[in-house]
């Protein structure tokens, strides 16, 4: 049962890690810039005020809507970029992470699911339903 470790494995793993880091950097950095500008220009406050009642159901502030939207429609890298730029409390980040775990990158991933034989309406409602339920539960628990 002894584990074999050699330099080729470490090199391959490190290369994959760097590849993922570069991929996510291409999205995280532009997102943080855009969100920082939105925040400074006051646009974000308007969006946050509109979304505050809905976000309140999940124990989140109105700002957090931006994280959910970027995660659902774009991907988790964009959501992370928004989290970094907004400076949310750890409790809110945890609730968002749980909600986004169930539903993210929906445009791309629903296409993969469909190709793997699952109908779009079923998978979309399953994922969004799980995400919203998790938000209701953990928003109260945490």
């Amino acid at each position: 049962m002894a584990l074999q470790v050699n330099s080729a494995m470490v090199r391959n793993g490190a290369l994959k890690g760097i590849k993922v880091t570069l991929e996510l950097g291409k999205i995280v950095v532009p997102t943080t810039i855009v969100v920082t500008v939105l925040r400074a220009s006051g646009v974000l406050d308007a969006v946050a005020a509109t979304c505050a009642p809905l976000m309140g159901l999940f124990g989140l502030s109105g700002d957090a809507a931006l994280v959910l939207i970027s995660g659902y429609f774009v991907n988790l890298y964009a959501a992370t970029g928004s989290i970094l730029a907004l400076g949310l409390a750890p409790r809110e980040i945890t609730i968002l992470a749980i909600m986004l775990g169930f539903a993210h990158s929906l445009l791309v991933e629903i296409a993969v699911s469909r190709r793997a034989g699952s109908p779009i309406p079923a998978i979309l409602s399953l994922r969004l339903g799980a995400s919203l339920c998790a938000g209701l539960i953990f928003g109260r628990m945490l």
Binding site: L3, V5, M9, V10, N12, G13, A14, K16, G17, I18, V20, T21, L24, G25, V28, V29, P30, T31, T32, I33, V34, V35, T36, V37, T80, G81, L84, A85
Partner: peptide, 27 residues
């Protein structure tokens, strides 16, 4: 500029976790 710095430092924090994890996954 503030956004750029924040983004880059975030990427650095993520890299320090993602790269070791990918090495473990490879092993």
């Amino acid at each position: 500029w503030e956004g750029l710095v924040q983004g880059l430092s975030g990427v650095w924090v993520i890299a320090r976790i993602v790269i070791p994890l990918m090495i473990l996954l490879e092993i």
